[in-house]
Amino acid sequence: MKRIPFGTTDLPVLLPAAARLQAAARRDREAGGPLPRLRARHGLWLAALCLLSAGVADAQMGTGAGGEARRSAFAALIDWAPLLLDGFLFNIAISFLAMAGGTAVGAVLGLMQVSLLPPVRFGSWFVTQFFRNAPWLVLLFFCMFLLPFEFDLGFVVIPFPDWVKATLGLSLPVMANVSEVVRGAVQSLPSGQWEAAESLAFSRRQTLWEIILPQCVKRMLPPWMNLYAILTMATVLASIVGVSEMMTQTGRALAAENRPELLIPFYSFVLVCFFAYCYPIAVATRRLERRYQVKL
């Protein structure tokens, strides 16, 4: 803290904190309101909550049917952790596949939204708005119960497992959201970019692929990463339709243990796993937003 002689009109200023507070206020103004800021300590709090819930479960632990002492909640969690982590890896695999498929189709759909042909533009807009505003769980149920379990080609039978249907169901809303991200990025560029390319005798296709889209990549990257984090957290919906991901494996482990006091420790472990995976994505998204923000 800087010392000011007595009798002066200047007020003391905390110099080290001034720059930090000014930067935080600038980010809030750019976002239109105060931003919630996750820190690494929040993950430590979640881990502490997991350990605390295990301690509470141990305090509530009774004896078995034959009077023998039951193992602690922490020991049960350690025993089941490999199975739960295998399910979590399945969640990540589903999120990768759904994001890849949704991004590929959504990018084409987004470019169709800026087409000069009214039927193409209206059709892509309708598909985008339909799947973007449809509940994810409803789309998941439609894919699970309307698609066949196998395809009989006459000479070979190709199975169509439930996890593929779940991946397809989750890729539909991703497709619609990516379409909006692409459309917004393309239309956010100044119209002078199109006019300058037209004056240089570029075709619309050349303008789009060689001038417009390369500039849109850095604008699309932060919302695309944010969408992936949301998709990863939404993969637990696949447990409702019987896919063997982390939530399904957690339910099976709890059913095998048949101990109600293990509910909070096990689901706290699920929460910590998803936080540990999605928090770095949120941090990278914020950094990219600050790095690629449009200077007006």
Rank of each mutant, 00 (worst) to 15 (best):
W194H: 15
G154K: 12
P173I: 14
T167Y: 04
E198N: 13
A166H: 02
G169H: 05
V186Q: 02
A196D: 06
T207P: 00
R204Y: 04
A185C: 04
S171G: 09
V174Q: 06
P161E: 09
L200H: 03
S191E: 15
R183W: 02
L139Y: 06
L208E: 04
E195D: 11
A196Q: 09
A176F: 05
S191C: 14
E195N: 07
V157T: 15
S179K: 07
G184H: 03
R183C: 06
V138I: 11
L189E: 04
F149A: 14
R183M: 08
L140C: 05
L153Y: 08
V181F: 02
V186P: 00
S191H: 15
Q206S: 09
L139E: 07
T207W: 00
F160V: 13
V156C: 10
Q193M: 13
A185Q: 02
P148E: 13
M175L: 11
R205Y: 11
Q187Y: 04
S199D: 12
F155G: 13
V178H: 01
Q187E: 10
A185F: 01
A197Y: 00
G154N: 10
V182Y: 01
G192N: 04
P161L: 11
K165F: 05
D162A: 14
L189R: 06
G169F: 07
V156T: 13
D162R: 15
W163R: 13
L200A: 09
A166V: 08
V181Y: 01
V138G: 02
Q193F: 08
P190F: 09
S199Q: 15
F202I: 12
Q187S: 12
F142A: 11
L172G: 00
A176R: 01
V164G: 03
L189S: 06
D162C: 14
K165H: 05
F145T: 15
V174K: 04
L208V: 10
V182A: 05
N177Q: 15
V181Q: 01
F149R: 15
W209H: 12
A201C: 11
A185S: 05
R204H: 08
R205P: 09
A166Y: 02
V186H: 00
R183T: 07
S179D: 03
